[in-house]
Every structure is written in structure tokens, then in C-alpha cells.
Design a protein around this nucleic acid. Structure first.
Lengths: 121, 121
DNA sequence: TTAATTGCAAATGGTTTGCATTGTT
DNA sequence: AACAATGCAAACCATTTGCAATTAA
């Protein structure tokens, strides 16, 4: 794993954003530092960073997958219908597991709030 | 809005399944009744049924959208990692709105449990 | 009869892959 | 030099659309 300019730019896009990013958002943000950045390269780097556990995927209902830095505390997400950006939401409504139907086994849960962010509200 | 054989079959696929269905699942299920059923027709009918509010979309994180009969009580969903089927989960952990960050407005929420269904567990 | 519905093929949008080229070490 | 990373074009997959043929009312 070599350290290239584009990889550096992709990393710092996540550091700077502080919220989950879509591949296109990564291209736009990192592309300011490295204008020749290619979308294919973004996809390949995101994939590699997930395999190396630097990033995790953030599946968003009805939307393209986002990515965020790995190792954050358990939290959930907010999808803004105005700007399509995704934000982290600290905390978790406990008592989610107890919804599990009899005979089923729950290993994870996704909670996504949908609405308007501070800017769009 | 004319009543065709294929539309009838699509309707009854939902009645019979009792769980959210993907377009492909609809094709498979309704295709048993109407073998010449075409995937394009399924997509067009699903879209029409959503506009007419007979169905609602069920966005599943990281997966293709599912559809289910409209008008059900508020509930959530369970995604089985074994068979990729989606099931309804009655109930709702209250206290979800209180996760909303200051300045944000929450208008809806999605909760998806992920794990193994009764058959796959 | 005639307007809605269908089927097929082609277009689309997001993501992935093959392969030759470039860049780090 | 050796091999990982990149760029481009083509392949993919799910979904949508154009258009001519079919069918319910």
C-alpha cells in the first residue's frame, strides 16, 4: 500500500467533512486538492480502505452507500431531504433488539432519521 | 386504469407474500400465475401502484427498494442476511425523535433489524 | 374504436473491471 | 526493476424510457 497524493486527499476529505460521504462527495471534496482525481480511483480507494478497516460503509435507505471513518462510537444517521447529506447522530434508542420477532436472530440494526438539517430547516 | 391479467397477478403476489417484495420477487411470484409477465411491466405497475397509494416503498439499507401494501400500522423491517428477504416487524422503539440533533427537523425514521430469519437461523 | 397497457430493445446511472501506463519504493 | 496505483473505456446490474404492437373497455 503506497502513499499517493490522491489517497492522501481522500483521507483528508473524510477528516475535514466529519460526516459520512458518498463517492461523488469524496470526488468533489478531494478533487479540490487533487484536480485530476478520477472517480474510478475514488471507488478503488474506498474499497481498499474498507478492507483495511480505515472506513466503514454507511448504508442509507433508498440512497447510495456512504462511507465514514471506522472506530467511532455506536451511533446512527440523519439523512437530510433538502441537501441529501448524511450526518452522524450520537446515541441509540435502546430496546431495539426487543422488536426481534420470535425465532429470528438480530445481529445489527440501522436507524436513520429523515428530515431537514440545520441549514435546510 | 384497466384491469389486466398481469396487474391482477401482481396484486395477489403481495396479498400472498405478506411481506415486502422486491421487483424481482414480484416477477417470480406473479410469474407463476402469468408466465409471460415481463420485468418492465412489473416496474411500471409498481410505480403506478405507489402513485395510486396502493403500495408504499420500503427502502432497505444497502439493498434494492422493496414494496408493500399501503395502510399498514406503523412498523419496521427485518432484513435476513441468509435469504435477503425482508419481513415486517410490528412495533417501534419510542424515543427515536429525541435523537434528533439540535436545529434539525425529523419527519420520519427508518429502523431495520439485520440478522437471520426463522428459516435461516 | 381508441386510449391504456404491454414487450422489446435501447438508454440510463451508479459501480466495477480489464488492461496498458504511470509512479513509488 | 518490480509491482502497486491510476486512467480510460468497456462491462455490469438495476431501473427507466421510446416506440410500435396489443388489448380492455
Amino acid at each position: 500500500m503506497r502513499m499517493t497524493e490522491q489517497r492522501r486527499a481522500i483521507r483528508s476529505a473524510f477528516k475535514g467533512a466529519g460526516r459520512p460521504l458518498s463517492p461523488t462527495e469524496v470526488l468533489d471534496l478531494a478533487g479540490e486538492e487533487v484536480p485530476q482525481l478520477n472517480l474510478t480511483t475514488v471507488y478503488r480507494n474506498l474499497k481498499g480502505m474498507v478492507e483495511r478497516e480505515e472506513l466503514v460503509q454507511v448504508p442509507v435507505p433508498g440512497q447510495a452507500v456512504r462511507y465514514e471513518l471506522a472506530g467511532l462510537d455506536h451511533h446512527h444517521h440523519f439523512l437530510c431531504e433538502g441537501c441529501d447529506r448524511v450526518f452522524d447522530v450520537p446515541g441509540c434508542p435502546g430496546s431495539i433488539q426487543r422488536l426481534t420477532p420470535v425465532g429470528f436472530e438480530t445481529t445489527a440494526h440501522e436507524v436513520t432519521l429523515v428530515g431537514r438539517c440545520r441549514v435546510c430547516a
